[in-house]
Each structure stands twice: as structure tokens, then as C-alpha cells.
Design a protein around this nucleic acid. Structure first.
Lengths: 349, 349
DNA sequence: ATGAAAGCGCTAACAT
DNA sequence: ATGTTAGCGCTTTCAT
């Protein structure tokens, strides 16, 4: 494996000169010399050793994106945005699945610190656990001390997001739509209690209902677990209960998709019997049947923007105040006016 | 940022000794000394610099998985398998989206070489382009020369896969099922011509039909492009054409899902009017309506197994002969007997 | 069992 | 404009 020394030798120059032409240094190099080095590089098919460079420069051109689970389309879309932007800058992105597991998250943070990663992007709301937060913050402090940059695409470990969207506004859109359709008792498919995003969306739901003089009755809250399976199970409970809700809004699309499926399995028809609205607008929403009405969040852009911010910070720019992306309602086919009161809800009995 | 020197100093030993206890060296160290080093490590919250370690050891504990697009559930499931296994071994995995783009693939290969990556896992069939293959192989040769290991989960750049499944058998299952149902003219939704997997599946389809004395008529082949959008467009063409097929098998699920959706949009009902079977069994198949009948491929296991193989190779074990996972048919709701001949296909006219 | 010292391959002062 | 050289932080002979 050729090294810079070999290139320099072949070009008949010192390794310093070779380094200058190959490392994008501003230091002047004569055109002829430069060419000789370039030729030697080509001839040897030389590729600089990034470990050595990183060690010398204290920069690795590597960033990490922390996700709960890359199989969740919410995260894969953000990750794709990050990666595309990283690619444009000659960086490389690694994806770490934390599985919402405190230990796994900490493991990665240590590992990334050891790797001298340039930036870490948090894509998901952190765990609501005091000691875990403390541990995370200790790691982050070390990473920042080493010149690393942290960007949050969601509230994490007590840190406010740098790039965000309004859950408040999103839920308001969802509820306004439903109320406009005539719904008066609207339920909620909550996410995991351990995640901050979950808590935020639940609170936002309450606010949205309140603005219409409505309340979120305890009996209309089901646990969707942010997952399809969770949503499906919730549907079973929903049908078996006597929940009076004529519409459900879900804390995220995955649960909503599972919920709709669970409902259909029990012959309650969406949206005629009950309306459902999701949150996030992940890609599958459009391909599910009926296509899911949901709050659109610009996931890909979130990733791109987050990566861009990290680059700015690495370039020494000051951290700008949080940027908030607008959300909008993607009205598809899972919402309709509520069934007439006198009728019992189809499929239930 | 504390270094090994600092730890050694605090422990009152030489950096060599400190290294020996922290790097998992076999070299003996007195229990008392060891403890002092450990204490110092804890006290300083020291984390070894992997760049320095990598430079000295020529190993980085980093692997890369090359995918077409992480947003495609086919790849995200494999990637998840890889990552889970990597995690168990204390490795870190980076995901590179090639977008089926030759330049982007080569860019990453160079980059990974520069990073002294330990292993590269190819998850997708390579491009069918002679010069690109040559370029890729040059990079791979260099990576292997540097001690890196290559694992193929699909045929790539002329290399046979190390871990695979049988497209031949998969398509045979699909066709057998359809023929068993009574279908006699079966069409194919082909993938992109530029990808080897695509070519393989098309050929396998022909073989499967031939085993029943059937042929794949030119007019029954549509271009699904391996994507949902492609499948949806194909549906439009299919409906507008006078394609006599009563069933379609798709080169992959994404296209099949799009195809079904496109069909429904034009009021042709699946499976009553036309049956559809996919390939891969990506997660969304079960959540789409109707749930897609498809050939199940153990994607997650493919990833886990691929990563495991890479570890074995890194440990110096010889490369075993290719492992083939079994595929099976996941019969869901997009297949049924063909409509009666005398009826015109619903929704067409 | 411990330490001294020579790298690993590159960059960045500091000469010239 | 080019070269010399001292690191970057760790591992690993080779001594002791």
C-alpha cells in the first residue's frame, strides 16, 4: 500500500510538498511540481490514509446520525437527507441504531468519541431518565471538548432541538380538520411514555382539543407504542372497549397504520365508522389503504438541514437560533364526517 | 482531552503498561498495576483514540454497508441486521447510499479505502457496465491489499455472492402458485436493466414459466424499475395496453406495491381481475391493501450472516463456499384464480 | 512484569 | 517555493 512518502519519492519532492498538493493546503506550490505530484499519485493509485490525517488534523470528515431504528421510515428518510448532504461535502455518515435503549445509546456515544467523530446528529427525542441524561451529557461534553459538534433534530437529553417542527401546530391542524368534519369526541393513540417526543405530542393534543373547548378523556387514550404492532393491538383494545371516540389521532404514522389495519381486521371501516389521522407523513402513508391522512413533516429536509448546520458549526459559525420547519396537513382518505349518532358504530357490537 | 500518557502518568506507570491493560493485550500485567491503570482511566474518563490505535494496528473496527437507498425497506432491513451484529462485536457500521450511481459507488469505495475500513458489505447487485466493474475491482483489490475484507450479499462487479438466496427458486415458487391457481398467461414487472439482480430475476422467471411449458410473451413484460413509482406507471401502461396476462409477478415488492396501487386507481381489482405476486417480502407487504403475496427472503438474517462472515474472514478463517438461504412463498391476498375467460377484465374497456 | 523507544502516515510550524 | 522536523496518540518489539 503506497504512502505519501512513496508518492513524494516518485515525484522527486519532499513529503511536505506532496502533502501540500494533496491535502488542499493553501501553501503555494509551483505548477510544475504540483503536476509531478499529481502524476505520481495517479501512477501509484495513492489514497491518503485518513487515520493518519485525522490524527494530525484532529478532524475525520465523519459524522454520525443516531436513530431509534433505521427500519422505521421516519428515520431512514432523515438519514437519507443527512447522507446526501454529507456526500456533497465529501463526508461519510454512520448510522447508529439505539433501539431506544439507554445502554446502546451510551455505547455509541463512547465509540463515536473514540473515533473522533466530527459531528453527531440526534434525530429522535431522548429518553426521559435523569441518570441517563446525565451520562449522555457527560459524553457530549467530552465530544465537544474534542472539537466535535452536536446537532439535535429533536429535544434530547435536556437539549433543545436546533432544527425542529411544531408538534403543537401539527396536532392543531389534525384536530381542526377533524372538528371541521364534525367530530366532537376525538381520541389519541399515544407513543411510548419514555420518549420526549411522545410526551410533547400528547400535550399538544390536549392543547389542540382545548382550543375547541374539547377534552381528551382518559378512556379515549390508547397506547400505540409508536409502532405498527402497537397500533394494531390498540385497535383491538379500542374495538373491545366502549370508547366513544369517532376519530383518533395518532402520535405517529406507524401506529396509525397499524391501527387502521387492526380496525379493518375487525370490520370497522375507516373512515366511515372512525376517522384516523397520523403524524409524520412517512413514505408508506400514501401506499396504505386507505391512504392515511396525516401531518406532513419534511423529514428529508430535516436531515439535509441538520447536516448543513453541523458543517456551519464545524466551520466555526455561531449556533443560530433554532429553525422551525412548517408542517402541513396531508389530507388523504382516512378522515370523513362522523357516523350519525343514532347508528351504532359498524362492526362493533 | 486526556490521552494514554495522562492515564499512565496518573497511574504512575509507563504508557506501554497502560496500553497493555487497555488494549486487550495478552502481555502479562500485575493485578495491582492493572487496577491502578483502570482507576486512572475511570478518574479521567479516558477513551482511547481510535485513529491512533487504528494507525498503529491497521484495524479500525469499522465496516461499511453499501446500499442503493436506505429508504428502500429491502436495504434498511439488511442494514439493520448488519448493524446489530456489528454492535455485538463492538464494531461500528456506516451506511453508504450509492443510488445505483457508478460515480457515487466509486467515490465511496475510495473513501472507505482511505478510512482503512475493515470490511465492506455489498447488499445489492452491481451495475452491468464493463469499465465500471474494472474500476470497482481495482478499488477492491487495494482494499483487500490493505487487509480489508469484502462480502457480497448479491452478485457484484463480477464477484459471486457469499451469502445468497435463490432467485430461481423464488420465481419458481411464485409461478407454481399462480399456475396452480389456474393462470396461464403470466406477465412480469421487470427491474432496471442496469442491475444484475434484475437480469437474474427475469431469466429465472422465464425458466419458471418454461417448466410449465409456458412462455414470457414480450407484450407481458413491463418496466417496474424496482420502485413504487415505476410500478404505478407500469400499471397505467398495463391497463391501457391489451396485455392478456391474468397475473403479474414483479421483480421486487416495491414495484409490486406500486403496481397494485396503480391498478386500484384504475378500478381493476386485485386479485379478482388480476393477481400480483412480489419478491423480497419487505415489511410494508403486510400493511398494504390487499396484503401482498410475495416471495419471502430473510433480509435481516442476510445482514447478520454477512456481517458474521466478515468477522470470520477478518479473523483469518478461509472463505467458506457460498451460503444459500432458503426462500419461501408468503401467500397473502393478491392472488386468486383468474377471472372467467368470457368476461372482460373489470375496469378495462 | 515493566519500561524505552521506534514507528504507523500524515500535517504544520519553522527554516531556507 | 521547497525541505526538515516535530509531533498527533497509540502499539509493539526489544531490553531489562
Amino acid at each position: 500500500v503506497p504512502s505519501l512518502q512513496d508518492v513524494a519519492a516518485l515525484a522527486g519532492v519532499s513529503s511536505a510538498t506532496a502533502s501540500r498538493v494533496l491535502s488542499g493546503s493553501l501553501h503555494p506550490v509551483a505548477a510544475r511540481t504540483r503536476q509531478k505530484v499529481l502524476d505520481a499519485t495517479k501512477a501509484l493509485d495513492f489514497e491518503p490514509n485518513m487515520l493518519a490525517r485525522g490524527l494530525a488534523r484532529n478532524r475525520t470528515q465523519t459524522v454520525a446520525v443516531l436513530v431509534h431504528d433505521i427500519m422505521d421510515e421516519y428515520f431512514s428518510e432523515i438519514a437519507r437527507g443527512v447522507e446526501d448532504e454529507a456526500y456533497r461535502h465529501g463526508f461519510v455518515a454512520l448510522t447508529c441504531n439505539t433501539d431506544r435503549d439507554a445502554d446502546r445509546e451510551l455505547y455509541y456515544l463512547r465509540k463515536l468519541r473514540a473515533m473522533q467523530i466530527d459531528a453527531i446528529l440526534f434525530t429522535a427525542g431522548g429518553l426521559r431518565d435523569r441518570t441517563h441524561r446525565r451520562d449522555v451529557n457527560r459524553q457530549l461534553a467530552q465530544i465537544e471538548a474534542a472539537g466535535g459538534v452536536i446537532v439535535r433534530l429533536a429535544p434530547h437529553a435536556g437539549g433543545k432541538p436546533d432544527i425542529a417542527y411544531s408538534n403543537r401546530r401539527g396536532l392543531a391542524l389534525a384536530v381542526d380538520h377533524l372538528v371541521g368534519l364534525g367530530h366532537r369526541t376525538i381520541g389519541f393513540l399515544a407513543g411510548s411514555r419514555r420518549i420526549t417526543t411522545s410526551a410533547e405530542r400528547l400535550a399538544s393534543m390536549r392543547l389542540a382539543l382545548a382550543s375547541h373547548g374539547l377534552e381528551l378523556a382518559k378512556t379515549t387514550i390508547f397506547d400505540g407504542d409508536f409502532s405498527r404492532a402497537g397500533g394494531e393491538q390498540a385497535a383491538a383494545k379500542f374495538v373491545d372497549s366502549d370508547c366513544p371516540a369517532t376519530a383518533m389521532v395518532s402520535a405517529n404514522d406507524q401506529a396509525a397504520i397499524g391501527f387502521v389495519r387492526g380496525l379493518r381486521a375487525r370490520h370497522v371501516v375507516v373512515p366511515d365508522d372512525v376517522s384516523v389521522v397520523g403524524f409524520d407523513d412517512i413514505a408508506p402513508c400514501a401506499y396504505v389503504e386507505p391512504p392515511l391522512t396525516t401531518v406532513h413533516v419534511p423529514l428529508y429536509e430535516l436531515g439535509v438541514h441538520g447536516m448543513r448546520l453541523a458543517f456551519d458549526l464545524l466551520a466555526g459559525k455561531p449556533r443560530p437560533k433554532p429553525h422551525e420547519f412548517p408542517v402541513e396537513l396531508a389530507i388523504r382518505s382516512t378522515t370523513a364526517p362522523p357516523p350519525h349518532r343514532q347508528h351504532t358504530r359498524g362492526g362493533r357490537s
